[in-house]
């Protein structure tokens, strides 16, 4: 019974790991192929965090309920809080100092 339970848990954990590696690969490909800075920021924030969440979820499934999985949850929450701030700092710097010519028109601003 215990052996069966462990193997099912390992199977789900490996599914999570493979999903995480798909998201991380899409991050790398998106950073190379996207044409603009802001679209690269999209690839660098969302796909990266989705990959991170799925890798952490796989680790927690392998570990079970213990103090180590609580520590992993602490790291995950810390990444949740800090990564959008880092992306926002880069984006707001770029918006203020006009590094790349802005692409929006007057119609978009009035909405």
């Amino acid at each position: 019974m215990i052996d069966f339970n462990l193997s099912v848990r390992q199977l789900f954990a490996f599914v999570f790991f493979i999903a995480g590696i798909y998201f991380l690969l899409s991050t790398a490909v998106g950073l190379i192929r996207f044409p603009n800075l802001y679209t690269r920021l999209h690839a660098g924030s969302k796909c990266l965090m989705a990959g991170g969440i799925s890798v952490f979820m796989g680790c927690i499934l392998l570990e079970g309920i213990s103090f180590v999985s609580l520590k992993l949850i602490v790291i995950m929450v810390f990444l949740f809080i800090t990564n959008p701030i880092a992306i926002h700092v880069i984006a707001s710097f770029d918006n203020n100092y006009n590094l790349i010519p802005k692409t929006y028109t007057k119609e978009d601003l009035d909405k």
């Binding site: 809080i81 800090t82 701030i85 926002h88 700092v89 707001s92 710097f93 203020n96 100092y97």
Partner: peptide, 13 residues
């Protein structure tokens, strides 16, 4: 460059 107030609130947390 000075940061916005959003960064300050997160740093407090």
């Amino acid at each position: 460059t000075p940061f916005k107030s959003i960064v300050n609130q997160t740093v407090k947390l």
